[in-house]
Nucleic acid binder design. Structure first.
Length: 469
RNA sequence: GGUGAGGUGGCAGAGCGGCUAUGCGUUCGCCUGCAAAGCGAAUCUAUAGGGGUUCGAAUCCCUUCCUCACCUCCA
């Protein structure tokens, strides 16, 4: 599999000979997560699902930043302790992302559980003369790391001309960033240099090293983390180990709204709770994967509505595959064999697309073609069990990789509805259509849409969705 | 101002030197007692503008214009 590496600006072959180790920068837990966070996480969740579907072992680490000024300030506002606040939003995080059908990472380490590791790392950086103590804390000396700027393609001179850097008398160089900040207020931890808290970047260096070791396969996050976060991580980690930090840097494009980046500071975010209520998990996943991961996608009602249409096709396909005729009453073999070849090539296309820099839009293409082929086939003749048995695995594998889940109809529901359908059919035979339609409406109130075929009626359970309110 | 990524049909979105994906939409049909469902066909022949290179460019080079992101916390 090839993935575009931000650092070298080239596609690189992912080494899958051993366990693929992935580190994803998670969220700072001081507020609800929004669909921008969701996109990055969905992309990585899907990547992980894809690798695992190929039998590749994945160790996936995603952290929580649970110590930060924003958390402290917010906690003050709400009159609770920072720890209470962060744990509340960690709980919220899991609720939201479980609903989005995101698999749990192998580990979700918290910054506050790894303070000793960070202190060790800082000690080593001081020993190696990359860091120094000043009045307000311990700082990393950017000028000591010759390759600083290699990820974000910036030159140190550019920063100075940018003139947006705060002048801080206590630092040797305006670019230097904090590894440890002295603090007396809560929370703080003792360190060889005095009580305080870690800087933002050091946690990821420490935790990735602890959980994944040196030179792991993929480090990812949103594009907005390239600078300064990932740049600083590189400086710290490579100064410490003397080795390359991550083999591949994979960055996910922003979610925009009206063409503008969605972010807390702009106040234009859509929370996961909000989008889930309006659109449901499948639509959101499909939407988040609708463009190439590296490019921005724009959140808009129009596009979400288009996505619903596509999803209905998928649901329909599923209903067709799961209501095969009792047996091979259909003389299927020849046509089915021909069809099976198509399915194989679709599967191939799907995998090829994902192997080529995780080109999900192209993979979708293959997936939706399968859906269309099945729907098409079902329109002209009944699907036999044999046929379904052969298609379903491919269909379900793709659904599984994409993290999509179709609502299932329970047996009880099915039984109740089948009774109603029987009645409805009687009315239909008697041409009492009004009464028949009443029953249909009754069923639709249960969230089930009926699709009449010549000699049978399919049940289709649709999620409730759709508008931006 | 600096750096990076882009500008593809009504919309979304691939392709990244030749065979001009795909989906949605729209139109007209089919199916149906009807249908918000399903199917078919047609439609749109697009590649920001201007220069090149080439037998041939959306794809390479130059240039102009525009958009977005980063340069401050941010997924």
């Amino acid at each position: 599999m090839k993935i575009f590496d931000t650092l070298t600006a080239k596609e690189k072959e992912l080494d899958v000979t051993g366990t693929v180790r992935i580190y994803l920068c998670g969220v700072t837990v001081y507020d609800e997560s929004h669909i921008g966070h969701a996109r990055t996480i969905i992309v990585f969740d899907t990547l992980r699902r894809f690798l695992e579907s190929q039998g590749i072992k994945v160790k996936f680490i995603q952290n929580f930043t649970d110590v930060d000024d924003k958390i402290i300030n917010r906690a003050k506002e709400e009159n609770i302790s920072p720890l209470e606040l962060s744990s509340k939003f960690i709980t919220r995080y899991f609720e939201d992302f479980d609903r989005l059908n995101i698999k749990r990472a192998t580990e979700h380490p918290k910054a506050t559980d790894n303070i000793p590791e960070m202190i060790e790392l800082i000690k080593d950086l001081i020993d190696k003369n990359y860091a120094y103590a000043s009045k307000n804390g311990i700082y990393f000396s950017v000028s000591k790391f010759k390759e600083y700027g290699k990820l974000s393609k910036k030159r140190i001179e550019d920063f100075i001309s940018g003139a947006r850097i705060e002048v801080d008398e206590t630092k040797n160089d305006p670019l230097d960033f904090a590894l440890w900040k002295f603090a007396d207020d809560q929370p703080n931890w003792p360190s060889p240099w005095g009580n305080g808290r870690p800087g933002w970047h050091i946690e990821c260096s420490a935790m990735s090293l602890k959980y994944l070791g040196e030179n792991f396969e993929i480090h990812g996050g949103g594009r907005d983390l390239i600078f300064p976060h990932h740049e600083n991580e590189i400086a710290q980690s490579e100064s410490h180990t003397g080795k390359n930090f991550a083999k591949i840097w994979m960055h996910v494009g922003m979610v925009t709204i009206n063409g503008e980046k969605m972010s807390k500071s702009l106040g234009n975010t859509k929370s996961i709770d909000h989008v889930l209520k309006n659109w449901g998990p499948n639509i959101i996943r499909l939407f988040c994967l609708s463009g190439h991961y590296s490019k921005p996608i724009d959140y808009s009602e129009e596009i979400l509505k288009e996505t619903i249409v596509k999803w209905h096709q998928v649901e329909n396909c599923y209903a067709e595959l799961n209501s095969p005729e009792k047996d091979g009453s259909v003389r299927p073999s020849r046509f089915s064999e021909f069809f099976m070849k198509k399915v194989d090539s679709i599967k191939q296309e799907f995998n090829d697309a994902l192997n080529s820099d995780f080109n999900i839009p192209l993979a979708f293409n293959a997936f939706f073609r399968l859906v269309k082929e099945v729907n098409n086939f079902a329109a002209s003749q009944d699907i036999s069990q044999l046929f379904a048995k052969n298609i379903v695995p491919a269909f379900e594998t793709m659904l599984e990789i994409l993290g999509l889940r179709i609502s299932k109809i329970s047996d009880e529901e099915r039984n109740t509805i089948n009774e109603l359908i029987k009645k409805r059919n009687e009315f239909r035979e008697q041409k009492q259509y009004q009464k028949a339609d009443e029953i249909r409406k009754q069923i639709s109130n249960m969230g089930i849409v009926l699709i009449d075929h010549k000699n049978k009626t399919l049940l289709l359970k649709q999620e409730k969705m759709g508008t931006e309110s």
